[in-house]
Amino acid sequence: MLLRPAYTYPDQVATLLRQQGYAVLSPDGVGELAGCTRAELQALLPSWNGLPPDNYLKDGGRYRRRRHSCFVADGTALTLAPHRAHWQPVEYNALHGGMQRWFEPMLPEMVAQPAWTRLLQAMARVATDLRGPQPWYIEAHQFRIDTEGGIGRPTPEGAHRDGVDLVAVFLLARENIKGGETRVFQADGPAGQRFTLTEPWSVLLLDDARVIHETTPIQPVDGAGHRDTLVLTLRAKGFQGD
Rank of each mutant, 00 (worst) to 15 (best):
P52Q: 01
N93C: 01
L119R: 06
L78C: 06
D146Q: 10
G132P: 04
N49Y: 06
T147W: 07
A85W: 01
G150R: 08
D74C: 13
A85L: 04
N49W: 10
A94V: 13
D146I: 06
L107E: 14
L119P: 00
R131F: 12
N93F: 03
F143D: 10
M123P: 02
E139T: 12
R64Q: 09
R118N: 11
G50P: 04
G132D: 05
P82N: 07
D59K: 10
P114W: 03
M99P: 08
E104P: 07
L120F: 12
K58A: 15
R66I: 08
Q142V: 07
A112M: 09
A73R: 01
C70W: 03
D59V: 10
D59N: 15
L78S: 03
W136D: 09
M123S: 11
A81Y: 14
R131I: 10
A127C: 13
H141N: 08
R118V: 04
G97L: 08
P135E: 02
A77Q: 15
L130D: 09
G61Q: 01
D54F: 14
A124C: 01
G97Q: 11
K58W: 04
N93Q: 04
N49G: 13
A73C: 05
G50E: 14
Y63V: 08
N49P: 03
A112V: 05
P89A: 04
M110H: 12
L80E: 15
P82T: 04
R144D: 01
M123F: 10
V126S: 00
D74Q: 09
T79G: 04
G150S: 07
T147G: 01
P53I: 07
L120V: 07
Q134D: 11
Q42G: 09
